[in-house]
Write a protein that binds this DNA or RNA. Sequence first.
DNA 1: CGCCAGCAGGCATACGTATGCGCATAATAT
DNA 2: ATATTATGCGCATACGTATGCCTGCTGGCG
Lengths: 344, 344
Amino acid sequence: MGRPPGNKPTSFDIAYLAGVSQPTVSRALRGSRSVSRATRERIEAIARDLNYSVDKNASSLRSQRSNTIALLFFEDPTPDESNINPFFLAMLGAITRQCGARGLDLLISFQKMEDDWHVRYQDSHRADGLILLGYGDYTLYQRRLTELVDHGTHFVRWGSVGADTIGPTVGSDNVGAGRLAGDHLLGLGRRRIAFLGQADEHYPEFADRYAGLCDAMAGQGIAPDPALQVDALTAEDAGHAAARTLIGRGVSFDAIFAASDLIAIGAMRALAEAGLTVPGNVAIVGFDDIPAASLTTPPLTTIMQDMKGAGQLLVDTLVAQVEDQPLPPGTLPARLVIRRSTGG
Amino acid sequence: MGRPPGNKPTSFDIAYLAGVSQPTVSRALRGSRSVSRATRERIEAIARDLNYSVDKNASSLRSQRSNTIALLFFEDPTPDESNINPFFLAMLGAITRQCGARGLDLLISFQKMEDDWHVRYQDSHRADGLILLGYGDYTLYQRRLTELVDHGTHFVRWGSVGADTIGPTVGSDNVGAGRLAGDHLLGLGRRRIAFLGQADEHYPEFADRYAGLCDAMAGQGIAPDPALQVDALTAEDAGHAAARTLIGRGVSFDAIFAASDLIAIGAMRALAEAGLTVPGNVAIVGFDDIPAASLTTPPLTTIMQDMKGAGQLLVDTLVAQVEDQPLPPGTLPARLVIRRSTGG
DNA sequence: CGCCAGCAGGCATACGTATGCGCATAATAT
DNA sequence: ATATTATGCGCATACGTATGCCTGCTGGCG
C-alpha cells in the first residue's frame, strides 16, 4: 500500500524500509540461517505489505536455477489438431500437481521429434530439466535419446523400464499388469486369450503387456498362440481393424486383452458387428482406464495405471537428477478395474 | 565444436570470435537493422557453430519481457486428483500450438480460486500475461476478476461474452449454438424440447445456450416451458439425475438439449433405464463434442466448438493486450455435429 | 581480563543480455 | 571543397537477485 504502483518494489526498497542491506533481504526471504528471526520477520512483514515478489528472471539468472521443468509431449502422427492422447492428459494432471507441491513451474509443449529441445529448453536456461512423454515407434526415438544423454541433458522419460532402456526412465510395471489381466481372464475360465496390440521392439510397453499375459498363461500350462496376437496401435479404428482381422482368421477365442482402451473399444464395435456378445462370447480387458471406458456398453474392465504415483515419480526422479543425486529407475504397480465386459 | 563443453558459450564468446562487441552480437541475433548483413551472417554462423542459445533469464531480465504466458485452469470442486474437464484439455492443445506458432512459452498450472496468481506469475515476471480457464460458479469469480482488472494484470478469460463481462473475455457464440441445436431439433419435428443445464447468472454460458434454444423455439411460435428446464452442472451423474427429475415431472418431451456432453451421456443412461429410446422417443443433442461423444450408443449429436480458433483468439487477444493495443472481445461460431442420437 | 567462537549482517560482485547514446566512417547534398 | 545525413558499431550501464568473503560485536570460558 505504501508505494506508487507502476514500478514494482525491489529488494532494495524492502531493504531501505527495513533499515538493512539488500543482501540481507534476499537472505531473509530465502530463509537463510544467518539472519536473525526478528529481522527476518520484519522484512517479511514489509514484503507482504508492499506486495513484493521476487523477480523470477533475476533470481534464476543469478542462481542458475530456474525451478522450472519442461514437459514435452511428442507424437509422431497428428501433425495438425488437438486430439491429444487421453492417457497423457491424465498424466499431465498428475505432473502439474506434483510440480505445484514441489514449488516448481511447469512449461509445456508439443513437439515434433525433429526439433531440438535441449537447445530450446535446457541450454537457454528456461528449464532445469525435461520430462518426455510420447507414444510412437520407440526405435525412432532411440537416436534422439542417445544424443540427449551424450549432451548431458537432464531428463526423464515415461516408458518401458528394461535393461536396454536409454536414459532415465520410469513407467508402469507393464509385465505385471499383463499378468494381472491374464490371471483375471484365466480365473474366469477363459483359455483362448487374444492380444490386440503391436508387441515388438517398436512398442516395448505393449510388448511388456503381452509378455505378462503369456506369463500368466504359462502359469496354467498354456502356450501362447501366435494366431491370437494381432498388431494394433493405440487408436480406436486400429482396434476395430485388429478385431476384424482376428475374427477373419477363424481361430477360436473367448477373451481379448487389448493394449489400450481405445483398441478395446474399437474391438468391441467389431465384435458387435460380428454378432459376438461381450462378455458372453468374449470377455475383454482394456488398458489405461480412460474416462470413456466406464461409458461403453458394457463398461470396460481395464487396467488403471497409478497416475498420481507416476507424476510424483517422474518429477522426483528428474529433480534428483538435476541435483546430481540420480535415483534408480522406478516402476509402478498397476491395478485391475473390473467392470462388466468381463462378466461379473 | 570449438569449445570446451561444460561452460556454455555466451554472447561474449561469440563477440570475441567474430571480432565485434557483445552488444553487436545481441543486435545481430535479434535481427536489428543497425547491423550489417555481412556481420550478422558471420555472427549467426558462429552462434550456430557453438550451439549458442540466448539465456532466457538474462534476456527476460533485461528486456522486462518473458515471452511466456501462463495458462491457469481453475476448478472449484475436485480438490484431489486428475479428472480435468475434457473440454479444457482440447483447448489446451489448441493454445499450446498457437503459443508455439507465435514463439511463446507456455506455463501451466491448476489453481484453487484462493491463490493469488498475479503475484505468482505477473508480478514475479514469470509470464507476460495469463489465460484463465475455469468452470464453476461465475459469481464466485467476479470479485477475483475485478481485483485483477484493478491490479492492471494482463489476462484473457474464456467464457460468456456479454455486456456485463468483467475483463477481456472471448468465447463461443453460445446463443448462436443454442439456436443451432434448437433449429436442428425443430427441423426434425420435435416440439417439446427440454434443456438440461443450470441456466442462470451463475453459469452464463449455459444460460446463453438456453437463450439460443428459446430463440429458435420462438421462431416457430413456441413459448419456453419452465417445466422442461432442469438444472444440472457439467458432470455425468448430474445429467443422470436431471433426466430422472425431468421424467419424474410427468411432462411430455420429445427432445433434450443438454448443456454438455457429459450431461447428455448421463441423461441417455437415465432414459434407457426408463425404457425410453433414443432417438425414437427422445432426440438428444449434447455440447462440446468430447471424444466419448462418438463412442456412445447411439453416437451423440453435439455442438462442436472451434478449438483451434479459440486457442488463436485467446493467445492473440492476450498478446495484443500485453502490447497495449487491446483487441475488442471476440466470439467464435460453433458447429453442429449430427450423429444418430437425433435420428437421421 | 584476554582470547576465541559464533552470530548478524554489510560489501562487492557476478549472472548474461539489451539498449541509449555517442563516435567514427562513408555516402550524399550543396 | 565543405556541410549534412545515414550507417555500423562500441561504450557504458541497467535489469534485480544471490552469494563469497570479511567485519564488528556479543558472549562464554579459561
